[in-house]
Amino acid sequence: MAHPDRTPDGIGSWLGALASAAAADRDGSVLADFATSPAMGGLFGIAGALIALTAAGVAATVSRISARRGEWWDRAEWALQLAISRVSREREAGLSALRILAREATKNEGEMIDAVTSVYVADLDGASEQAENDGEGGAVDVEQEELSGPT
């Protein structure tokens, strides 16, 4: 035997009673009843889940960007170490890598790489000129323009 409230007639009469109570009760107690009902708790649960999902998405994005920047800095450190090498082939490889990395650098990172390499290249140019003056040869041909990233 079916429960009277679960039959189509029972549901219809329940909805009818709810509608008539809402129409007859104009002081807002229907809304007050809804605000304290389990349905409102469910809505708050859904809202909380959406907030948590948004926070997790933001945290994942921040983590991904941070990891990408960390890996960029690892490559930049490697390239800088090569760029200051006394071995010309390593130095050329490091400077080439820095030119490529400069494309992905932030403004501050690009300025820092430019400042560090320009000081070192100036030292190399000075040493090269000194070697030429001493008759030892072995000039280093590195131009500052190669180190600058996109402006």
Rank of each mutant, 00 (worst) to 15 (best):
A2D: 14
H3A: 09
P4I: 12
I11E: 12
I11D: 04
I11C: 08
G12M: 05
S13Y: 10
S13I: 10
L15W: 03
A17I: 08
A19L: 13
A19D: 09
S20W: 07
A21H: 06
A21E: 07
A22L: 05
A22V: 01
A22H: 00
A23T: 06
S29H: 05
V30N: 05
L31N: 15
L31Y: 11
A32T: 14
A32F: 09
F34R: 12
T36Q: 14
G42R: 06
F44D: 04
F44M: 07
I46F: 12
I46Q: 12
G48S: 14
A49P: 03
L50S: 14
I51Y: 12
I51F: 14
I51W: 12
A52G: 05
L53M: 12
A55H: 11
A55N: 11
V58F: 11
A59K: 09
A60M: 15
T61S: 13
T61K: 13
V62Q: 13
V62G: 04
S66C: 05
S66K: 15
A67F: 10
R69W: 09
R69I: 13
W73V: 15
W73K: 09
D74V: 14
R75A: 11
A76I: 02
W78M: 04
L80E: 09
L80Y: 06
Q81F: 01
Q81Y: 00
Q81E: 02
L82M: 14
S85E: 08
S85D: 11
R86A: 02
R86P: 01
V87M: 06
V87L: 04
V87K: 06
S88G: 07
S88W: 08
R89W: 05
E90T: 03
E90K: 08
R91N: 03
R91V: 01
R91C: 00
E92C: 03
E92M: 05
L95R: 00
L95C: 00
S96Y: 00
L98M: 11
R99H: 05
R99F: 00
I100C: 05
A102D: 07
R103W: 04
R103G: 08
E104Y: 07
T106Y: 08
N108M: 01
N108W: 02
E109N: 09
M112P: 02
I113W: 00
I113F: 04
I113R: 01
D114C: 08
D114Y: 07
V116R: 15
T117M: 14
V119W: 08
V121Y: 00
A122S: 07
D123Q: 03
D123R: 02
D123I: 00
D125K: 07
D125Q: 08
S128H: 06
S128G: 13
E129I: 12
A131C: 06
E132S: 13
E132Y: 09
N133S: 14
G135C: 06
E136C: 02
G137W: 11
G137A: 07
A139V: 03
A139R: 15
A139D: 05
A139S: 12
V140K: 01
V140S: 01
V142P: 00
E143G: 02
E143I: 03
Q144T: 06
Q144L: 08
E146A: 10
S148T: 12
